[in-house]
Design a binder for these strands. Sequence first.
RNA 1: GCCCGAGUGGCGGAAUUGGUAUACGCGAGCGACUUAAAAUCGCUUCUCGAAAGAGAUAUGGGUUCAAGUCCCAUCUCGGGCACCA
Length: 879
Amino acid sequence: MDRYNPAEIEKKWQKIWEETEAFKAPSLDEIDKKQAKMYLAEMFPYPSGAGLHVGHVRNFTIVDVLTRFYTQQEMNVLRPFGYDTFGLPAENYAIKTGTAPQEVTKENIANFRRQAKKLGFAIDWLREINTSNPEYYKWTQWCFLQLYKKGLAYRKESYQWWCPVDQTVLANEQVENGRCWRCGAEVEKKKMKQWFFKITAYADELLDEIDALDWPDKIKTMQKNWIGRSEGAEIDFTLADAAELSAQARCETEAPRAVGVGSPHPSEPRLEREAASASAKSIRVFTTRPDTIFGATFLVLAPEHPLVDKLVTDKTREKVNQYQTETLKKSEIERQENKEKTGVFTGSYAINPATGEKIPIWLSDYVLMGYGEGAIMAVPAHDERDFDFAEKFDLPIVTVIDKPENSEDDGRCYHGEGELVNSGQFNGVRTEDAREQIVTWLEQQGVGKSKVTYRMRDWLISRQRYWGCPIPIAYDKNGEPHAIPEDKLPVILPEVTDYQPDKSGRSALAKAKDWLKVEIDGKEMTRETDTLDGYACSSWYLWRYVSPHDDKAAWDKDAIKYWAPTDVYVGADHAVAHLLYIRFWCKFFADEGLLPFREPVKKLLYNGYINAPDGKKMSKSKGNVIDPLDVIDSGYGADTLRTYEMFIGPYNEDASWDTKAIGGVYRFLNRCWNLAFSKEKRGADDNSESSAELSAKQRCETEAPRAVGVGSPHPSEPRLEREAEDSKLSDANIVIRNKTIKKVTEDLHRVSFNTAVAALMEYVNELYKNGTTAEDNIVLAKLLKPFAPHLACEILEKYGVGDIWPVWDESALVEDTVEVVVQVNGKLRAKIQVSTEDLANEEKLTELALKEENVARRISGAPKKVIIPKNAKLINIVA
RNA sequence: GCCCGAGUGGCGGAAUUGGUAUACGCGAGCGACUUAAAAUCGCUUCUCGAAAGAGAUAUGGGUUCAAGUCCCAUCUCGGGCACCA
């Protein structure tokens, strides 16, 4: 073989890796305890019918480069792989063609696996998992039951986002700008009884621990915003007629009661409290500005607020009901587009507990039922939305903050800080201080207390679709839910013939009549027909990987203790959904004593997308899709594709595919090949003797060749003509060689793949100029292996050495003379060659610098100041 | 509107802690090899200038011996959130 032939060598090495199970992670009893462990994973893919795309390749190659890098450093490495297979595309395909999703999934997995192997990924194939496999989803159901037992999986009837196209409800995280994340259809609101996971129970911890995570700031900020913690107060406003009743009662019994306190503040969940408040005599609001309470001139409730029925009067009922219906019909998009305030008066009044005044209660869709209490106190003087509303409906506006003279706020209503006015005993108090003081005051009267509210809602997990993990619940005759006993798991997803969800909003499972019937404790029950959100399946897979075939537990205790948490997790999506959910489950299972850590992912790498050459998103309809398999098969091979995608730019930024630039990477790999195999390019070649020239350290490593893809040493080859120059050449490259080892090693540690490849290119260019040696070729192959493993193995095999990561010799980096930059007043004026000794000698260095003509003529007399920074080969003379 | 990022040659990008701006690659140009082309190899390639030199990292200021890097303001682009009280 005298030409670089990727097709041939890649096939050869992939076969070897396959047969030797080369990337199998060590079992717990095989582990070398002296070495650190390293658990890496990509976000497992949904195996679509289209196969791998270049984005997958970028994502998986990042993991692969790091996997091989750490493996070459002899760490104990776990790098598994799996498939996130439940989901709508397979089901929609089933509806269209009648092909069972089970079948399609099987084919798609086989295709993905074949393609991943063609890319030479160092995957432990013995750990492959598939979320739609009953062996896997048995434990997803088990996880659900653990949450259910602790009250963290519950059922609630409320208005939910409904996608009319996909015919299922969606979680908040799956609604993007009022549209379904998957199909882009406008979502609607539908009142349904649905299953939720109580992620809000962990809101504080999820928020507080974000800062300490080694995750990109972008993701951390998004999660913080998503959780959206707001500190404020909840305040009860007594209903006006209730206040009158209460006053009467006080007269009769002479036992003064706190105004408006119907019942003590009920504890969560909100569901219970809503029920309780239906009979209450007050309306509870949430505000972040209790300091402005004296300016609250009306209340606004969400149209769906449970108390509305109680508040309407005969006069207002018709208009109120009409308004409620209208708002429900409005799509989220319509609401976002038209921010003109709408609303209706309920006919009832409440008492402002601060002023004692009677204020009207209105309904408006700018108040959201899902946030806070679904009710607000409106302070039109200091809140823009309330101001708009008051202006439109001619409601009173009372200023309670004195706008400072110097304020730049020229808005119609001032919402900054200042001194209170029109606020009774609080007049003159700064708003910052008044917040606390007023809450204390309200608390003393029993009508308010400080309160923290979150933007994040509980996670809606039921889906009215067939192709998902069945929820392990059945209902008795009264409709009460019962857990399927753990020893009856898994609840197998039955095979059906018609996958179409029915119009009533139930999944196709409702048609599996036999399956629906189940007996629990001798009682006949009916199974839940909703399936779990796919995100539930992916919320625990990182732990399944440690013992993927365990039929006794979701994960093995010892294995999880050793391997988890995941050290490096790489993905390009799911900033607030998946990445929040896995944190939530981790905290829950840690509380259950089932996980010995509270954060699932130590380091998160969030890679950018690869766009089409035209800079636009790749899409079939635009016809600008680059198929990675085409790239490989066109002759470039997997190594070129992998290396190119690492070289394309910083891993965490979006990049555009450049059909020309990939040729440059192919040329580079060709040059690597030529250095080792082409007689013309070789400066000197190896034989038994040149191996002996390897430094002691490197020889030590190479004498213990690793099993990874390195066969037996080749017999020595004939000596070459230029062998005489070998030792000289070796000297010529010693600096660049050690520099390159250092640069590539450090770059991989700081996840800078593009510059690592650039350093290898420089090294190769240098070897082309100077001539190469066996040692150079071996070091090059070792450093290249994470990127281009097939080619690297081919070179290493030739020299009969292992792939242990080389170590640079710091002393080899010290050159006899160094180039020092001479600046005058910060401007570059000369470059001088000085010995290492002189570099350390400030006086000598100054003297040498001043001797330079271009320097001397700019300086008359003694320099004012001379600066020689420690870590730069530079001298700056201030004239 | 609010909160994050980012802005460097013809293009993708490099400059890691404030210390030689433009590494590496693409493209372009020139040359070698070739009957020729491709491939390959070598050289050139920020701008102005004959040169000495001067000027350039979105724009304008500032700090510093020294600024792509730090600070202030402005502009542009990208991302996230968005009637969340």
